[in-house]
Design a binder for these strands. Structure first.
Lengths: 154, 154
DNA sequence: CATCATGTAACTATTGTAGTTACATGAAAA
DNA sequence: TTTTCATGTAACTACAATAGTTACATGATG
């Protein structure tokens, strides 16, 4: 696996839920994502625990949003995934005895910390509402007769 | 392997070379890094191609810096490694047909691009001289009788 | 009670670094 | 000229983490 794409995936799922009246099943969401229902359940588990979505079993069951779109930031979603590591590069050793390596690590760690803060700050400033509005802007630009092809069942 | 630590490793090696009079062998550098000589040669190959270091075979051979410390930035070193991906997270699909996913990807790609630029800018502003000076500042703080233990043969 | 849908464990596939072994190439010393 | 030293590389194993899949348990609805 090249990169962790769970954030991208779960956001896709959440926006599909926002477009869909009533509960969405893992099955239908997985179909929109072209993946497996178990993958959907897996990436949604953290969001459920934190109260952003609800899930119901049995007939008429499925996933529903438990909050308004403007109440959920990308940072909330990221943290619900368990705050996976953001950077693909890192220090070789955490607490090296070698002073040379300590100097290297200190410089790199500072830089890493800074960009992680930048990214988390950006995530904190983007809500699902932002993405939802962007989607609708894109949707409005598509000719009516093409819409089904580019946005599953909308 | 959790994260790519080649940048951390190669910087460690370069600073050890700066402290060492004459050529350093892959063997001795690997010993300082507590790894294998082949790993050292592998991460140094790109730097050699770009003229930042030289290598010589045979007796008295090994690695030498080909430029002053202030002429090599962390960005140079990073690029000599082949500019490996900086972020551990990314979009699920590059060019999705689904408009929902396009909106998600656009927002994430913007954020990703921004933090990559921030990190590369920082790397561009740090030279090996910076790290070298930091190492010597740390070194000066250590009591003389402990120095061998924390900074291989200095 | 049959069906539907989630919850989860367990296993495979994939991808890329790290580490190792083995051997070829070439330079300096004996 | 032969030995020794050191780099250059290919090839293989170990490892880690996500993605995808199968299998089955749990619980709610009709």
């Amino acid at each position: 696996m090249k990169r962790d794409s769970r954030l991208s995936g779960v956001l896709h799922v959440l926006l599909h839920m926002a477009e869909h009246e009533g509960p969405s099943t893992s099955e239908s969401l997985a179909h929109a994502m072209q993946t497996n229902p178990v993958v959907v359940r897996r990436i949604m588990a953290g969001l459920r625990e934190r109260g952003f979505v609800r899930s119901e079993k049995g007939h008429g069951g499925g996933w529903t949003l438990a909050r308004d779109l403007e109440e959920i930031t990308l940072r909330d979603v990221y943290e619900a995934l368990g705050s996976p590591g953001l950077l693909a590069i890192g220090n070789r050793t955490e607490s090296p005895g070698c002073l040379v390596e300590q100097a290297v690590n200190a410089a790199l760690a500072d830089s890493f910390q800074e960009v992680e803060n930048v990214l988390l700050a950006r995530f904190g400033g983007i809500t699902l509402k932002t993405l939802h509005a962007d989607f609708h802007a894109r949707f409005a630009r598509i000719p009516r007769n093409n819409r089904k092809a580019v946005a599953h069942e909308h």
